[in-house]
Design a protein around this nucleic acid. Sequence first.
DNA 1: AATACAAGCGCG
DNA 2: AAAGCGCGCTTGTATT
Length: 572
Amino acid sequence: MTAAPKWNVVAHDGEAVVVVGLTAGFDEVSRIRCTWPEWPAVAETADAATRWVWSDTVRWYPRLLDAGIVLARCQDLRLCHAILRASALVADDAAAPLRAALAWDAPSAEAVTTATPALFDLDAGPGGVPDDLAEVLIELRRQEAAVTSSADPGRLRLLLAAESAGALLAAELHAAGLPWSRPVHEALLEEVLGARPAAGVHAPRVRELADVVRAALGDPAASLDSQPKLLRSLHRVGVLATSTSRWELAEYDHPVIEPLLQYKKLTRLESANGWAWLDEWAADGRFRPVYVPGGVVTGRWASSGGGALQLPRQLRPAVRADPGWVFVVADVAQLEPRVLAAMSGDLALAEAARGRDLYDGILAGGVVSSRAEAKVAMLGAMYGATTGDSGRLLPALRRAYPRAMALVDAAAQTGDDGGVVSTWLGRSSPPSSEGWRGVQDRAGAPDASEADRVRARRSARDRGRFTRNFVVQGTAAEWALAWLADLRGVLAAQPLAPAEPVASASGIVFSQRAHLCFFLHDEIIVHTPVAQAEQVADAVRLAAARAARLMFGDFPIDFPLDLRITADAAKT
DNA sequence: AATACAAGCGCG
DNA sequence: AAAGCGCGCTTGTATT
């Protein structure tokens, strides 16, 4: 009997789907041809330990989820290509073929179908990265060569596995959806905005506030939604603001300010998450944003549709577990500074973080005089603040945590100089753009003007702040992916409970056992039957501990979670 | 009429 | 409160 293949490569071969089993040495040990409708059945019978290799998770996985099939691991060639082609850990001669394979830089099939529906309507095919067997096999070899060319293949393998697990999870989160209570959302809207208005009309509370604002402006016809017009109206009554932003208006003492700020708050809720949003995004009792793994240069996920990255806290009460189910809601306290402590090997910062609120730890060390100061100083260090309270506190932070500060300062200097920085696992920042280098070159020319030099300084500093933050934000994203990947595996290994008697909005596979249903940078929500909630909570904590060890080995850093078990996900 | 951009505000 | 990073979405205005 042949050993299980290391990879199962799935691709198109003409009209057919073909699954090729490969050993670590790229020897073919199996080949199955099937039709697209047969693909789920073939995937289901394959060895569960084998890693699936495919062009783009969005192209292959949703069909399996529809059939109730969840896979353990994959290599998403599109996402891994993006990492490896740019990674400073990959040797130049192994990166060159990846950089030359431009077809693999295409956006995902999902992005293509949503961004250019006109193309998709025709028979032009779905676009995206290559999908036929020969191309896929060649790309897999290129990627393997890139990984083995590295001085530290282990880190890159970890990164590619985490990124690919994220791709699986993103599809699963979309399929499962976030349980969403339409009645709770509607009640909230009615309480704040009044009864649902006809299409194209403002809600009652909004209209009342508009009247109050116009009265205070002494102009019954004042336009409140056009910034230039509103600004002129404000100037007429003596409010000499330079913009209509909330924080600037709040500085002025005038009867129009309070109702105007309230008006802006309500119109924001109405337009961003009002009845129209509810109809479009959560009509079936699940909110299904499209998650975009690797959508941010730092490796964070982006999202498209419904604004999953910006669900206002105000709406959290509408996140409601199914009957008999609860949520395990967990977020990591101060993820980024903890990651910074670990990657810089800063024992003093790790000590401040251990077993407590990190900002309290900094305060306890006598570095600053309040928790608020500790927070603003730490954020300033990671974002590159130079002025204000944050800038003022940086010297104290530098004295107390020299290693951590040296790491972010060095990253900033590298970016300022036009260089590339990398995360802990080897995701590298984009190289400086041609335009950016042009600005720097101009400033260095003998006939450069003062304006040229000022512009160059500014863009260099801008880039420095980006690379400063890149290493921390990107490594935090890696930690989060490691956490998710571990947890996802543990949950998927749980035995299936009997199917719910009532069909779940999440489909059969997610109605039979605990599953992740939301992820946002450093926060997760697991939807679980009540009986398993404690067990799931333990798995969530254990996954965090294992992620820390996987990334940072024995370095003494911990990642405490704020965790609660609740039927409604409102923040406490 | 369609598209690009800026302002503003929501999230981490 | 904003400052210093990263995003998405809506609205109005400017451009074509």
